[in-house]
Each structure stands twice: as structure tokens, then as C-alpha cells.
Amino acid sequence: MTFYFGDLLPFSSQLAAALWVSIYITLIAMAVGSGFGVLLYLGKAGTLPVVPQVSSAYIEVFRNTPLLVQLYLIYFGLPELGVNLNPTWAGIVALTLNNAAYTAEIYRAGFESVPGGLVEAGRALGMRGSQVFRHVVFMPATRNVFPALTNQFILLFLASSIASIIGLPELMNSILNINSETYRTFEILAVGGLLYFVVSGVFALGSKAMESYLFRWGVRSRA
């Protein structure tokens, strides 16, 4: 068995374009999904009637079923109800809804881990609830959730490859197309895997750099 990567060269621009699709569907799903995730967390933690139960149910259902099945329900199921989404939109919607459930749990853990003493100190200084949230709780909570959120971003990027199964033209899909055109299976899978690996590594390093810049105040607050 011999390896020959030369056959892949003509496909490099196709791979680059597909990689960009993977990145931007991840960015959309992360941005919209984490916004939705905050709402889910607030809904779950809040005191409105019914909303906490609905939020909890949403989070549990999405966290306890495979992304692929969620994707199938959206892509194959929704047309039954008259909603036709192309693969790209179906993929983005599935990734977004899925991501929201996970980020909601990340926010919950982040906000719950802010020491109660900080809230008390803010209140003892005469701050209103909203001021305590903005000036006292928000930054430590963000610091607490930041590593988990960037980790989630990387996992979402890797998970976006699942959308190739319904034909979303992202990196994994492009890898499979190139495989069927060249039969350079090992080579294209290796190159594809390397691309995912390098990009997720760059994200990880970038998030570390961002973290040390944003949270220069260092050590976690004491109890």
C-alpha cells in the first residue's frame, strides 16, 4: 500500500471552502445557541409558572438524545409539517438547538459557583439586585463559564461534521466527496482529520490566550 497525497492537491480550494462552511455554521450555532442557552438557564432558575419545567424538559431531552436523531427530526420530520429546510439550514437549526441545551447547563454551573459572599458584600454596600448582577456577579461568573464555553465551541465544531450525513456541504461532506472521486481514502481522511485537529487546536490556544487576557485578575475568588 502506498500513500500519495498529490491527487488531493486539486481539491485544496474545495477543502478550504468547506472548512470555512464548518467554521461559520459553528459560529452561528454558538452565537445564537448560547444566547438561547442563557434564556433557558434564566427560565429554569426563575420563578415564573410553568417556564422552569419547560426549560428543564427541553434541556434534558436535548442532552439525552443524539444530535443525529435531532438532525433527522428537523431535516426529515419537519417537511411532514410543511416546513422544508435545506441541509444547511437544518444543520444550523439542529446545532443551535442542541448547543442551547448544553450552554444552559454551563451557565447554571457558572452562576451557581459564584461565592454567595460576593453577593452579600454587594448587598451590604447598598447595591440593588441588578447592580449586584452587573458589577459583582457577572465577571466572576463569566470567568467560571469561559473555559467550558470555549470547550463547548470546539466540541460543536467537531460535532458539526455530523451534518455531513444529511448533505450539508461542510468539511466532512467534502472529505467524503473527494474520497469517492479519488479513492485516496487514507490520504483524504488523514488530511481531513488533520484539518479538524489543527483548527480545534487553534481555537483552544486562542481561547487560552483570550482567557488570560480577559481574566488577568487571576486566582479564583475564595469562598
Binding site: A124, H135, P140, R222
Partner: peptide, 13 residues
Amino acid sequence: VGMVFQHFNLFPH
């Protein structure tokens, strides 16, 4: 009314 806590509770950020 100023208050000082056992565990300081300074705002770490």
C-alpha cells in the same frame, strides 16, 4: 452601615 466579612468577599475581578 458598613460591613466587613470573615472571608473578606472582595470582588476578585
